[in-house]
Design a protein around this nucleic acid. Structure first.
Lengths: 216, 216
DNA sequence: GACTCATGTAAACGCCCTTCACATGAAAGT
DNA sequence: ACTTTCATGTGAAGGGCGTTTACATGAGTC
């Protein structure tokens, strides 16, 4: 095994402290929430002095912002894979997309917290903002494909549809999606709740499950 | 003006420290977010020593939980007033309800943060949990009145409808509702976004704006 | 008027955040 | 090969915060 990306503390220089700090942040956020982790904790976790992280991040917020940026990039990949260009049909792919969103929020709680709940302003870092917009872009693309299924007269703006789906999905993820604390109990799994909401919403747009096959 | 509830620091005893601490917390949360306020700050704001708050709250989290509980109670009142027993008809009242929700999230950012984003487990305090459930109860009631407009066969569970509406509203409030930081830009005001979403959703349930008048 | 007890204070401990001068060693230049 | 350079990590220090403890105060009670 190579030590290039490993975590063996070698001599005076760590060699990969930045990566180690990001992983420490993920570990600690998952454990104690985005507020319950300290810069010094991350340093200790990486086996360096409390001052070392300042060589790589301006402050604690910059570290969280970097975690959030990486989270958005992971997120984009996950959503894109789930959407899979709308195959075999837009409705099926949208269902996968929603489940992937909830699954990400549950499995990657640390990323999700950093992305949406850590109080990081999206504009604080242009790279963060762009990463977030790329993730939303997947939803936007999906909405465009859905809207294209409708008769040209009376098509709603695809952007609005994307925002609606994003909002309800994020709302469910925020309120009920996480496994640990702050959960509210629910009479059904979040995935079913979301699926039902989207089905009803799409029916309201005039898109039944029958309109999916055929014309692309 | 009476000093009974005022903020004049009298002699050795403050007289109203608990209230003063809650107001300090609201002020500071509104200013710097739920993470960016310290117990000692609240004490300084109230003009007492850093140890004084411990006579009234076990720790910082207990203070935030109390703020959240009060927030839910305010919230319940606001939602109930907006719903107004479903008058003049359920759809109109639901629209008011959604706007009141967003308005509360925007105007009472400090409360809203404490209620939903401060990482307070709803079960940490039974009173907090009950207050939250009373607030949701208003939505549940509204959903029941809406569902009652539908033909008995094929009525969706009112609880599910309430959860859907809560989720999309909370999602919009979380993502776009706040005025200051962490805002994402939007091509339309959040209120319109929500109104459109709910209209489409209700149409998907078979409830057009025409079904509102008449039978209650 | 003396007592009681909730309420506030002061001091102290440990931890955290941040900065500073300084140490180290990998990589570049000659 | 030797020196230089500079990013990277260290140690110590200052200030702040959270919390606990022993003590002070004074409002209400008998």
């Amino acid at each position: 095994m190579t030590w290039g990306k490993g975590d063996g503390p070698r001599g005076y220089h760590h060699g990969n402290l930045k990566e180690a700090l990001v992983r420490a942040a993920l570990e600690l956020i998952a454990e104690k929430g985005p507020a319950g982790f300290t810069f010094a904790d991350a340093a200790r976790w990486a086996g360096v002095s409390p001052a070392a992280p300042y060589r790589h991040f301006r402050d604690r917020d910059a570290l969280i912002a970097d975690v959030a940026r990486r989270g958005f990039e992971e997120f984009t990949g996950v959503l894109q894979a789930a959407w899979n260009d709308g195959r075999p049909d837009a409705m099926t792919a949208l269902d996968r997309l929603g489940k992937a969103y909830l699954d990400f929020a549950k499995r990657e709680q640390a990323y999700y917290s950093a992305m949406f709940e850590a109080g990081v302003a999206p504009d604080s870092d242009p790279q963060l903002r762009e990463a977030g917009e790329r993730a939303f872009g997947v939803l936007r693309m999906a909405a465009e494909k859905l809207v294209a299924l409708m008769p040209p007269q009376g098509r709603p703006p695809a952007l609005m549809v994307a925002l609606h789906i994003w909002s309800v999905t994020h709302g469910i993820a925020s309120l009920f999606g996480r496994g640990d604390a702050a959960r509210r109990t629910l009479p059904m799994p979040p995935e079913e709740l979301l699926e039902a909401a989207v089905l009803i919403y799409l029916r309201g747009l005039g898109l039944g499950p029958d309109a999916t096959s055929g014309r692309s």
